[in-house]
Design a protein around this nucleic acid. Structure first.
Length: 742
DNA sequence: GTAGGGTTAG
């Protein structure tokens, strides 16, 4: 049992309350003081300040409520500080109001907490009122108060048009003054300041002009406070610099870093981690490295904040190797360092590595937070790993993160990309709040699964709910139109985007329209449309048209397109392959061979068709004609049995898809062993009857396989879901969800 | 009183 503190210890504690560093010690002190000094307001408010310093909200409130009314100013200060440090801004402000209503004069120590609360509630008017109050009390020249003022005004300025949320605090105040008028403030405090916590957002009462005036005003407010401060420290400079960075005023921010020197202040770790994101955004590794060097010379490189900012900066500049180096050099790591290195991998398309770091993080006993999950779930989407995604989803639910908008959006995307569109829709429906990203994710999901009408309906519903479509969401809705052959709708959205929403169409939008025209067989129109682009079309825009030319057997246009592609991208493997295939399909073997030879001469190799399937948590990959799988014999046997039944049901192999100059029987054999058929046959023999089979393929399904899979789905009575490089096909009962349009 | 990591993209 701990011994009670002696009189000497107690005396020491009174001189230096910060020496009490633990909750039990604080409680001991509390008990001792009660024993020696009784319930005097002075001694209790001393205990209160100790509790508040330790951030013990409950204890602080208990002591506060036991104080005789009205409480001394020091007690108010402690409670306000405690509320503010717990992020309970509304409670902090309510207490501040009550304190003033009771005639307690605030001193300079209380303003930083109050101003911070105004900033976090984004309450511009209240913030200005508190500023006025600080001026009247005569503490606006105080260093801490000045710094807090600048921080607040910078936050207001950077919030852009979000001033409306300030209504929350207005309601607090309105309610406060009503209660004040009713008289019994002491009774309210008795029931605890919690009664002031509100959850309904207020309305924006300010007109556009008002907001505009406020914004212009705040541009200067930060600077005005800065200029008028009688003394400034590093924090003052850092605050203004951070404010500038957050509102995109990079030039001014960097100029101020240089100016700091004239004021005899050296940039510290705060300054550096504030300006580093500038170089990340501008992809300027050279300048970023200079800062890194400065950090090393000044011993800041082991700082966790600098570390994660550096990792992020290098990643954004595509220097992941440097991100790794910084990460491994860190003497210790927190959750954010891990999130940074995971994010660094994912931003650079290194999904497996990202997952590796995620596992190491767990092994290192660092608990993944919401941000870890919203970073790692997209890795499952990219790798189409439903198994892993489900596992993580389970973790997310257990941790209670499933209501986080970021995470929910990434889950919607993950399930859609892993073939589970119904699950994606279910999660979307159950989200309590839909932002533009979650809407876009579900619209895109529907588009990929060929649910074009759902996609369009959702896109319209989104706008009815007041969410403005963006660049990316138009890509999603155009993709939906493109996969369903909805040419008129696509044009409608394309025009609506440019004219109504003033969004400049990007490559992706052009690609969707061009792709659509091509698929619809309007090849010349597509060609002209691509040529109408304001800048030189890249090869990625032409290649869908090339595919369309192959599908619609238009050799002449294909030649024109090939020429355009090779102009911008002479190494385009796809073009050589496509041209060779197009000539083969036209039985112009000589020209086909010419393209193949010239491809070989350039040392270009075609990427092989590959299909894979997850069975019992393992991925099994198959190449076309692949005999290497341990169960190959069984797979082949299954394919034979299936083929027999398929032919009885009326399946006729479409050998025109085989672009080799070989005998008819051999062509059938080649078709029979396309990678997707091997994967499907393996799926049929290694999973329980009746369950769905999910295949992923790296290139488009050929028409013959598409036809064959329809028969197979009916014969085995199972749903077969095939994801190719652009969309999903759901085969069921002899039909495909794409309606044979893909 | 100041600082670091996140979701959607044919």
């Amino acid at each position: 049992m701990a011994t009670l503190p002696s009189v000497a210890v107690l005396k020491a504690a009174l001189d230096n309350p910060r020496a009490i560093a633990t909750k039990p010690r604080a409680r001991q002190l509390h008990a001792q003081i009660l024993k020696r000094h009784g319930l005097s307001a002075a001694s209790l408010s001393f205990v209160l300040s100790v509790y508040a310093d330790l951030g013990l909200l409950r204890d602080s409130l208990l002591v506060f409520r036991s104080l005789p009314c009205p409480a001394p100013p020091a007690a108010w200060k402690s409670v306000i500080r405690c509320y503010a440090s717990h992020g309970l801004a509304a409670d902090a402000l309510a207490s501040f109001s009550t304190m003033r209503a009771l005639g307690r004069r605030p001193d300079r120590n209380v303003f930083p907490s109050v101003l911070k609360s105004c900033a976090s509630l984004m309450d511009v008017r209240l913030g200005e009122a508190v500023h006025g109050c600080a001026v009247r009390v005569g503490v606006d020249g105080d260093l801490y108060t000045g710094n807090a003022l600048m921080n607040m005004y910078a936050k207001f300025r950077n919030s852009g048009g979000d001033v409306g949320t300030g209504g929350v605090a207005h309601e607090v105040l309105d309610e406060m003054s009503q209660r004040m008028n009713c008289g019994n403030v002491a009774r309210q405090m008795g029931s605890g300041p919690d009664v002031y916590r509100l959850n309904s957002p207020g309305q924006n009462e300010m007109g556009l002009m008002g907001i505009w005036r406020e914004m212009c005003g705040q541009r200067d407010s930060v600077r005005k406070v800065f200029d008028m401060m009688p003394q400034r420290d590093v924090v003052s400079w850092n605050t203004v610099i951070a404010g500038n960075v957050q509102s995109g005023m990079y030039g001014e921010a960097l100029a101020m870093v240089r100016e700091m020197g004239n004021a005899n202040l050296r940039p510290d770790s705060f300054t550096l981690s504030t300006v580093l994101p500038i170089f990340a955004e501008h992809v300027d590794v050279r300048k970023g490295k200079e800062i890194h060097g400065y950090a090393v010379r000044n011993g800041f490189d082991s700082n966790l904040f600098i570390g994660s900012t550096l990792i992020d900066m290098y990643a954004k500049c595509a220097c992941v190797a440097d991100s790794y180096r910084v990460f491994h050099m860190l003497p210790q790591r927190d959750g954010i360092s891990w999130n940074s290195i995971i994010g660094a991998c994912l931003q650079n398309g290194m999904f497996d590595e990202g997952l590796k770091f995620f596992r190491l993080m767990l092994k290192d006993d660092v608990k993944p937070g919401p941000i870890s999950f919203s970073s790692i779930i997209p890795a499952c989407s990219h790798l189409t790993s439903l198994h892993l995604g489900k596992q993580l989803h389970g973790y997310i639910i257990r941790a209670g993160f499933d209501y986080n908008v970021y995470i929910a959006s990434s889950l919607v995307d993950m399930y859609a990309k892993c073939g589970k569109i119904e699950k994606a829709k279910w999660i979307f429906r159950n989200m309590e709040l839909h932002d533009i990203v979650s809407w876009t994710a579900i619209v895109m999901g529907c588009a990929l699964h060929g649910h074009a009408l759902d996609a369009i309906t959702l896109f319209e519903k989104m706008q009815m709910e007041g969410v403005k479509p963006t660049y990316v969401s138009f890509i999603a809705v155009l993709t939906a139109c493109s996969h369903a052959g909805l040419v008129d709708e696509a044009w409608k959205y394309f025009n609506c985007m440019t004219q109504e929403f003033k969004i400049n169409p990007g490559l992706e939008h052009y690609a969707a329209i061009a792709d659509l025209l091509g698929r619809a067989g309007r090849l010349e129109e597509a060609y002209d449309f691509i040529c109408s682009m304001p800048s030189e079309p890249p090869s990625s825009l032409w290649s869908p048209l090339m595919t369309a030319c192959r599908v619609h057997k238009n050799v002449e246009l294909a030649e024109k397109v090939a020429e355009r592609i090779l102009q911008v991208d002479p190494e385009s493997i796809g073009t050589y392959v496509q041209m060779s295939n197009i000539y083969s399909a036209a039985r112009r073997w000589k020209e086909a061979a010419k393209w193949k030879v010239s491809m070989k001469e350039r040392g270009l190799r075609k990427k092989p068709a590959c299909s894979w399937i997850e069975v019992r948590n393992r991925a099994h990959a198959f190449l076309s004609g692949d005999t290497s799988h341990p169960y190959y014999n069984k797979i082949n046997e299954a394919l034979e049995v299936l083929l027999e039944q398929m032919e009885k049901d009326g399946y006729k192999p479409n050998t025109s898809e085989v672009l080799h100059d070989v005998e008819e029987e051999q062509k059938k054999q080649l078709l029979q062993h396309h990678s997707e058929r091997l994967a499907i046959a393996f799926g049929i023999i290694s999973t329980p009857p009746g369950t769905e089979i999910r295949i992923i393929k790296n290139i488009r399904v050929c028409t013959d396989c598409h036809e064959a899979i329809k028969f197979i789905s009916k014969i085995v009575g199972r749903e077969i879901i095939v994801r190719d490089n652009s969309r999903f096909h759901h085969f069921k009962d002899g039909k495909c969800s794409c309606g044979d349009y893909w």
